[in-house]
Structures are given as structure tokens and as C-alpha cells.
Design a protein around this nucleic acid. Structure first.
Lengths: 345, 345
DNA sequence: ATCCAAAGCGTTATCGCACACGCACTCTGC
DNA sequence: GCAGAGTGCGTGTGCGATAACGCTTTGGAT
């Protein structure tokens, strides 16, 4: 590992000069600069991060814009846990994080949180955004200063200038769910698909993935139901209705973390034969339902790791100034009673 | 974050004295020592790792004892990848790694590698061992010096003084496979279980897990076959035989990374109806079979992450001198065509 | 001829920690 | 009473990088 001093010695200049070349702080003759740059390349110099952050007085600030943690059945606690873990680890590198939460059912709330985030003083050096209210977010996104990098978590806005998207491939996760459902119900019968309102691109992609699997394969009949994530009662009613309307109901697919509402409704108003349920995300209530056999499969998108990874990517881009992949797709974990415990915490 | 200097100031001593207290290097009056220790606790002092490893000239050496990477269908390349990734990240902390590979079918080879590892000069500060040849390893393990911590990877030796085991819950993974198999074959027919030789506790646990599931549930008939991991031909013969002997063969369970041998044999000498195959681990050939639909499920034990985690745990114990959990069980990932790509690399 | 700004470069304090060294003082044994 | 060992403590240097600061040397304006 070459050090600044070695480079300086070899180029017969002082450390200060080498440092100025590296940081493009000017005040170095073009010729000298070129000579030093060559040596840097030749020796494959990599700055020592330890020494750098020990020495540097610079600290970094990231803004995190998330829905209220308790929304979506406390789903947002999961990425938040990952974010906080990364924050702890990066504390010694002088990375700080400000949190801004919004009500995902209120455009006003989003707007307010968004503005607080970008107008915060001191200015943040990077943003992490979960653009759940995608349409509302779309209108705001251009207000982000040119030089302020931002990363999308969980879902994203097409055609934005984000530095990266960390999340799942929603369509594919729907497809995966469909395959599992097909296995569970042994290839025939009616399967209900819960279209969870309010509208969300993310959810729609999952549903489309699910549908597209059955478009090719088979004898399964799909029926769509609408439920409202804000009204637990709507899940109960939907469950009741779909059982009444379809005697040969064999499965239900719920493409959000609200799966447990349906599972619980099925317990109390359930049909007399087994109806398989596939849901999403390892929120507490879903986990409980899975353990009791009320849910058969949960698809998990490594929510914690999404948060953790996002912060690390920001760190990599902003602090280390390295380039990052424009997209990181998390594995789609298939969770059952048998492997659940290894995914918790 | 308190620093040495702050503690020194508050205790009205010099940094050197505080340092001697922290490192128990003596030459400090009991009274002074107590006073300083109290302040350390009060201020919740945590040494700055950056400064520490920048300053310290001490370097650390870990020994890694693994089967030859190409064995078990190149399985051992997977944890090795994770180990090397951790190695890169820890290089700045002056962590070095020596590798010792052994032929998992030769006790002599293991012995030789083992001795090279523990007698290496300079002495290693920690060992990472994959004790695949468990019985042979059991005889050697007591030769590890009292003060040399070691961690088991992949499998372990019961009643040893290892600092930790990083791997999977083998029994549970068998159970999980059985559940999936049961789903695939729709609850009836004959399922073949490949007992892969030579003997290995790990594999036996998976088989027992698999069997125990069907002991309670159902109409599935299990039949055992023996194959020899060293002889690909034995897989072909076993496949042929099991098809002949069982007209209603519906599934095959192979509890090792050699799954692809069976899958390939089934392609060429296969039955005329679908036989579902569940195998283990994301080695190249298995991945290829999964993609082609020749294998239906692969169970993956996060092999890369096992390697990565192991080295980090050693680092945590040896370098940071923190305590570590005695057991880290990796998630049992269920891999299908639909989610495969998110698990690769 | 004088002055001054800017260019080009070197020097140095600092970050927090580790550790060798050295000074002053106490205790022990002969 | 004095050498030598041991105790209790402070000082100083180095790890590698950062960045403020200051010192020369130019060249152009006055």
C-alpha cells in the first residue's frame, strides 16, 4: 500500500503537493501534477480511509425521508432498523442522519417532510427517499438541488435523476408468489387477488407479475378484490364476500404487508376448506400468522437490508466518492414456518 | 464520544496513564486506576478504532482450514469468496489470512493441513475451520493451543471449545426440504432420498430432518439410496435403479451440493413422468440445472455469507476483543427459477 | 526601480491512540 | 548509606491524511 509520503518521495515533492493534486485544489504546476498523477497510478495508491476520516474535520449529513414507521402494519420499522444499524457503524466516519417522516396517505404531509429535508440547515450531503406516494413525489422531485444526490428505497420514480434504486423487482416477486400459489393449490381452483388501495405502482407491479404467471399456466381462475389499507374492516368484508362468491376458493394473494388482516378475517369468517394465503413482509402480525399456519408463505424483500444497504451506498457515493450501481435488487426470500426463525432480527 | 485526552483531563493525569489503565499494563497506583476506570465508565468511553489501528503496529493473522475449493462440486469456492471479501475489507485493519486446503476424502491430507495451520510461523491469532471430516478432525482438535481461538464453519464438532459455529441448522433444512417436496408431489407417491457417501454428520442431519417431516405427515413413501460423492457414475446408476424399482417415483431429495449429478442422470435416463428434485447449494452446475427446470428447488445456506461472517466474527473476537455469539445460524434460502438471479453473486 | 498578486511548493499542527522512554521517587538488601 | 530494582507518572514520536499557513519565485503594473 503506497502512502502519500512514498508518492511524494518518488516524485521529489512534498506531501502537501501530492495532496493538492489528489484533491484538485490547484496551485500545482501542470507538469508536476502530471508527474504525480502517473506515480499515483503506478503505485496504485488508495487513500487510507482510517487516516482520512481521523484527520478530516468534515462531517457528512444524510436526510432520510420515510413514511411513518407504524404505517403499513409497522412495515417501515424494518428498513428503519437497517438504516440505524448502518448509522451506528458509520458514526466513526462522521456520518450523521436526519429523519423526516410523512403520512403516506397525505400529500400535504409528504410535501412538508420533503421540504424540511431539502431545506434543512446545515444542508444534507445526500438523501434517502422512500417515494411511496409516487405521484405526489414525482411533482416534488425536481426541487432537489442539482448537486444533492438521492437514492430511492423500496420503490422509485421512473425517469428521475436518482443515483440509485434499492429495492425489489416487484413484478418478479408477483411471479414468484404465483408459482408458489400454483404449487400450494395444486393447479386448480379460484384464487383471489387483493388489490390494496390506495393506488401504488409497486403493488400494481406485484399484481401484474402474479397475473402474468397464470396467463400462461393453467386452470387457475383469478378474481380481483379491492381492499383499503386504511380500513381494516374492508379486509373482513372482502374476505366474507370472496368466500360467498366462490365456493371453490383455494387461495388468496395479498401483495402488501397488510396480509395479516385477511388471514385474521379468514380465521373468524373462514370457509370450511383450506384456503392458502400468500402475503408479504415480516412484520410482527404477519409473522404471528405464519407461525400459526394462518399464512402459508410470506415473501420478504430483505427490508432491513434495504435500509442498511441504502445508507452504505450513500456513504460510498458521497464520502468515498466512488461510483455506485444504479440499481440493487434485493433477493426475494420465501418464508415458511420452517425457515422463519432464521430471518428474524 | 469521549477521547483519551478528555478522560485524562478529567482525571487530572496524563494520556499515558489512562492508556496504561485501559491496557492493564500496570505501573499505575490502585487509587488512580480506580478513579480513571470510573471516569471511563461514566463517559462511556469507546476507543476510536480508526485511530487505534492506524496507530498500532500490531497485525493479526488468521488461519483458514478448508476442503479443496473444487470439492463437492466447487462448493467450497462459495464460502471462500465470502472470506476473501471480508479479507479485503479488513486489510486496512492489518488483518492477514493464511489458507490451508485439504482433501476432504483423505485423513492424511487433513492432518497435514491442520498441522501446517497451527504450527505456522508467525503464529496465527485465530483459526477458521470447516471440520468436514468430522471424525478425523475430532482427534486433532485438542492440539489447538489453549489460547488460540477457533471458529467452525459449515459444520462443527460437538463438545469442542470452539468460540463459535457459523452455519446452518441441518436438521431444520431437511425439514424444510421435506415440506417443499410434499407440496411439489402433492402429498403422495414415492420419494427417493440420496444418502451421499462418505459419511458426514451434517448430511445425516439433513436426511433425518427430511424423514422426520414425513414420519408425521402422510402418505409419502420414502426410499433410501446410496451414492458416492467421489463417483459421478454412482449417481447415474442410482437414478436408473430407483426409477426401475419404483414406478410411482415422484421426487428425489439430494442433501448435498452434488444434486446436479442426479438431475443430469434423470435427464438422460429419466422416467416418462415428472420427478421433482430438491437439492442443495448454489454451485454452478446446480444453478444451471435449476434454470433449465431439471431441479425444482435448491436450498441455500448463504455459503458466501458464512465465510464472510466467520472472518468478521474472528475479527470481532481477536482484534476488537468483544464477545461473540457461540452460534450463528444462517437463513435457509429457498431458491427457484423465479428468484434465483437475486441470489447470485 | 519598486511593489504586489498569484503561482508553486513545503512545513506543520492536528485527529485519537499506542507505546517506548525517561524522570523522580520509594523500597529493599547488604 | 548506597546501589539497584521497582513504582508511578508524564512526554514524545509515529501511524497516514488533511488543510491551514507561510515561504519563494515570477511577471506585470506603476
Amino acid at each position: 500500500m503506497a502512502t502519500l509520503k512514498e508518492i511524494a518521495d518518488q516524485a521529489k515533492v512534498s506531501i502537501g503537493t501530492v495532496d493538492r493534486v489528489i484533491h484538485r485544489r490547484g496551485r500545482v504546476a501542470t507538469e508536476t501534477s502530471r508527474r504525480i498523477q502517473k506515480i499515483i497510478r503506478d503505485l496504485d495508491y488508495k487513500p487510507n480511509i482510517l487516516a482520512r476520516s481521523l484527520s478530516s474535520s468534515k462531517s457528512y449529513l444524510f436526510g432520510v425521508l420515510l413514511p411513518l414507521p407504524e404505517q403499513d402494519g409497522f412495515y417501515w420499522e424494518l428498513p428503519l432498523t437497517g438504516i440505524k444499524k448502518a448509522q451506528e457503524e458509520l458514526e466513526i466516519y462522521k456520518v450523521k442522519i436526519n429523519y423526516f417522516y410523512y403520512d403516506k396517505y397525505s400529500e400535504t404531509s409528504l410535501k412538508k417532510a420533503f421540504l424540511s429535508a431539502i431545506q434543512h440547515s446545515p444542508q444534507p450531503d445526500g438523501l434517502l427517499i422512500a417515494p411511496v406516494l409516487s405521484q405526489a413525489m414525482e411533482k416534488l422531485i425536481h426541487q432537489i438541488p442539482e448537486k444533492l444526490p438521492y437514492i430511492f428505497l423500496d420503490s422509485y420514480i421512473p425517469n428521475s435523476k436518482c443515483s440509485a434504486y434499492i429495492g425489489e423487482d416487484s413484478f418478479q416477486s408477483g411471479l414468484l408468489s404465483a408459482k408458489l400459489m400454483n404449487m400450494l393449490v395444486k393447479g386448480s381452483g379460484t384464487v383471489a387477488v387483493m388489490d390494496v388501495l390506495p393506488f401504488d405502482y409497486h403493488i400494481q407491479d406485484r399484481i401484474q407479475g402474479f397475473q402474468s404467471y397464470f396467463a400462461q399456466n393453467g386452470k387457475i381462475i383469478l378474481t380481483m378484490c379491492q381492499v383499503d389499507a386504511r380500513k381494516p374492516q374492508s379486509f373482513v368484508e372482502a374476505a366474507k364476500k370472496v368466500i360467498q362468491d366462490h365456493q371453490n376458493l383455494v387461495g388468496i394473494f395479498i401483495p402488501t404487508a397488510c396480509s395479516f388482516y385477511i388471514a385474521e378475517a379468514m380465521m373468524s369468517h373462514g370457509s370450511n376448506h383450506k384456503v392458502f394465503i400468500i402475503g408479504y413482509d415480516l412484520v410482527k402480525q404477519n409473522v404471528a400468522c405464519l407461525q400459526k399456519g394462518m399464512i402459508d408463505f410470506l415473501i420478504s424483500q430483505r427490508s432491513e437490508m434495504q435500509g442498511y444497504t441504502s445508507i452504505y451506498k450513500l456513504y460510498k457515493k458521497v464520502v468515498l466518492k466512488e461510483s455506485i450501481e444504479s440499481q440493487v435488487l434485493m433477493p426475494l426470500d420465501i418464508i415458511t414456518q420452517e425457515n422463519l426463525k432464521y430471518y428474524q432480527n
